[in-house]
Design a protein around this nucleic acid. Structure first.
Lengths: 340, 340
DNA sequence: TGGGGTGTTGTTAGTGATCACAGTCTGTCC
DNA sequence: GGACAGACTGTGATCACTAACAACACCCCA
């Protein structure tokens, strides 16, 4: 049943001998080749079972020139967003019959991304998904070797790279419009780190709506996505006169801001309305439950694999794709109509 | 510099020709073999650079019989704990010169774990880390093929498998003792799902301390780690007379419980003290900031790779190891002395 | 001067699978 | 009965690398 201890695992030739056929016939059975007599196939399958034979994918990869492995380059996969995206990618890849080889970068910079890509290229992955939400990753993607398909998630469309992302600008529009619809004069913004494309997109959407409505555009604060930075920004906003509505670039910072407001006795949503972004599982249970914008990370993962596989099949003549996943507005209790 | 478009990437023989040596000499240079004349080495390195040559790890793996790839089997890597652990594992593996191939399971059961292990075995990984916190994964680990080293993280020590984990029991002791020290008569508990080993360990530590101190042991509620389940348990506790202290098995459920208490006007920590478990980044900013038990997931990842590499080097004669990472008590504002 | 060791390089045989091609065995049709 | 097609099976080459061994030059020392 299982290979005996210490001895070398059986190879195709062993199975062939046992089944009384050639190794090639074993190969045909394994690859579902049609022209194998049913009886022969059964004999081979029996031999496989008896010997506990496992096909050696390494040898197979050597001759077929593909490993059925996809590389994923990620960054701080501890955060909910990236973690969910990577999870979605992994699920979709496996469903399509691919392995996933992960490389998590501590910091994203050109050198880091290039190293990771080289590392994966050496391992002969068939394609690569780069979850590189920072602007600084773009140059590295532009200089990517042409012989291996790459798809970027939440990245800018630099070079010949297809991109899948959530529509950040639209999400920010939804949040901002919601607050204006509630009667607020204008909306403050706590932004993410400057070199993150997502942060940038959210700033753009927010500013766009305010501009279109002819509202004053307050100076935006910015944090580093962490609750602490949101807390600090919250303290400053609470001390600023006239603040009645805040759009925070992610839920964790929104949590920090809520905390700051609570400590200073500023009531949410009575005195200040707050909208977050992401819809992490915790948001519904914040004090108060957070109105936010949901990103469907699972869909992002799924589409990125779809685009990558298409790109891989297309071979030479392919065209750059751009797939955008729509965000969704999730109303909860942290926003209320403006009252004088 | 880089391989020309369309043409096949250069192989060792191409480098050899260009450098005027044999392919074996190229191999020696690549593998830092000592007996190569400095001048020859330079010529080879120059040829490598000029051709943009990359060693084919697949062919190498075929003959060396190891892939320098480790497999990681994870479960719901969207949660903070598992995500952080996997991140730690990946960092440590790469530092040791290994690739990481991920398989994320949607549900952990014997069949799922066995499939994942088979999948990774086929890919010829050199070792496997299974992050399998559920009891139901244990049987699959027990029946693991003997020819590939496996280390379990947060798992039970089933079969011949080394285990690395955080000391859950001790963490629960810390939490419970803290609450008793504050003068509470006894401590209620919101547990995690029954078949999770971590949930079990936390129940054990909690019960152990209460028993040792001769306190009444309330019936424990249980949730599924989600904030919602904590919320529901919180509602029930708030309706139970005499509850003054609650130890919740993770921070997310604690968040839900805090929300329930807030909605019912039960003040934390004045009327009820709450302790969580995990110390997720958000906990510090809950309302109120959550007293909790920190798990060092990074250390768990690091140790699991250390143990796995030792196991891989040991070959035939190795002994099962058990590495335990101590938890740490993190006092914040959700607990207070009992007042009548 | 010759023998042995050492440093450097090349040659040949493997690794375990797939691919291309050739060969055998049927059965059918004229 | 022979030609031919189609189903089935086997043989040898190939993938890109490393391991093992052989070959050669050189130096040291007896």
């Amino acid at each position: 049943m299982s290979p005996s201890l210490g001895r070398r695992p059986p190879v195709m030739a062993d199975v062939a001998t046992r089944a009384g056929v050639s190794h090639q016939t074993v190969s045909r059975v394994l690859n579902d080749h049609p022209n194998v007599r049913a009886e022969t196939r059964d004999r081979v399958l029996a031999a496989i079972r008896e010997l506990g034979y496992r096909r050696n994918m390494v040898a197979r990869a050597l001759v077929t020139r593909h490993t059925r492995t996809l590389g994923v380059v990620g960054f701080d996969t501890t955060l909910y967003g990236p973690a969910s995206t990577v999870y979605g990618i992994e699920q979709a890849a496996r469903a399509a019959g691919y392995f996933v080889s992960m490389v998590s970068l501590k910091t994203i910079d050109t050198a880091g991304v290039r190293d990771a890509l080289g590392y994966l290229a050496e391992q002969a992955v068939d394609g690569i998904v780069v979850v590189a939400p920072q602007r600084s990753a773009a140059p590295a993607l532009a200089g990517v070797p042409t012989d291996i398909p790459v798809v970027a998630v939440e990245g800018s469309h630099a070079g010949d790279v297809s991109v899948v992302s959530v529509d950040q600008v639209e999400g920010a529009r939804l949040a901002t419009r919601h607050l204006l619809d509630l009667g607020h004069e204008t909306v403050w913004h706590i932004a993410g780190p400057a070199d993150w494309l997502e942060a940038e997109g959210r700033v753009d959407g927010w500013r766009e709506v305010l501009t279109a409505e002819g509202r004053p555009i307050p100076e935006s604060l910015s944090g580093d996505w962490s609750p602490r930075s949101g807390y600090e920004a919250g303290l400053r906003l609470a001390a600023t006169p006239g603040v009645t509505a805040v759009f925070v670039a992610n839920d964790q910072m929104a949590l920090g801001a809520l905390r700051a407001f609570a400590e200073l006795g500023v009531r949410v949503p009575e005195q200040i309305s707050v909208v977050g972004f992401d819809d992490i599982p915790e948001s519904e249970f914040f004090t108060p439950p957070l109105t936010t914008i949901r990103q469907d990370f699972g869909a992002v993962g799924k589409y990125s694999i779809e685009v990558l596989l298409r790109r891989m099949e297309a071979g030479a003549e392919w065209s750059r794709e751009r797939h955008v996943v729509p965000p969704r507005f999730v109303p909860r209790a942290s926003t209320a109509p403006f009252r004088t």
